[in-house]
Simulated assay, not measured.
Amino acid sequence: MTYLRLFWEFFKTGLFAVGGGMATVPFLKNIGLATGWYSQTDLMNMLAVSESTPGPIGINMATYVGFTVAGIPGAVIATIGEVTPSIIVILIVAAMLTKFRNSKYVENAFYGLRPASSGLIGAACAGVVLQVLLRVTSTAVPDSLFMRFSWDGTVSWMGLALAAVLLVLTNWVKLTKKWHPIVFIGLSAAVGVVFRFGGV
Rank of each mutant, 00 (worst) to 15 (best):
T2G: 10
Y3G: 05
R5W: 09
W8E: 15
F11T: 06
K12Q: 07
T13Q: 05
L15S: 08
A17H: 02
G21K: 14
A23S: 07
A23N: 03
A23F: 03
A23H: 03
T24Q: 05
T24A: 04
V25I: 15
V25S: 03
I31G: 00
I31N: 01
G32M: 10
T35L: 11
W37N: 04
Q40Y: 02
L43C: 02
M44I: 14
L47G: 14
L47W: 10
S50P: 14
P54C: 03
I57Y: 13
I59C: 07
A62F: 02
Y64I: 09
V65F: 09
G66W: 01
V69E: 04
V69C: 12
A70Q: 06
V76I: 11
I77A: 09
T79P: 08
I80S: 04
G81N: 03
E82M: 05
T84D: 14
P85R: 04
I87H: 09
I88V: 05
L91T: 03
I92G: 01
V93Q: 00
A95H: 12
A95V: 01
M96V: 07
N102I: 02
S103Q: 01
S103D: 05
K104C: 02
K104E: 10
Y105T: 13
F110Y: 08
R114G: 14
G119T: 10
L120F: 11
G122E: 13
G122W: 12
C125H: 11
V128N: 06
V129E: 14
Q131P: 00
V132R: 02
V132I: 02
L133T: 06
V136N: 07
T139V: 10
T139Q: 09
D143K: 14
L145R: 04
L145K: 07
F149W: 01
D152G: 08
D152Y: 05
V155E: 15
A163E: 04
A163R: 03
V168P: 08
W172K: 10
V173N: 08
V173I: 13
V173H: 07
L175A: 11
T176W: 01
K178Y: 00
H180R: 00
V183Q: 03
V183Y: 12
I185G: 08
I185V: 14
G186H: 02
L187H: 09
V191G: 02
G192F: 02
V193I: 11
F195D: 01
F195Y: 06
G198A: 07
G199K: 04
G199S: 07
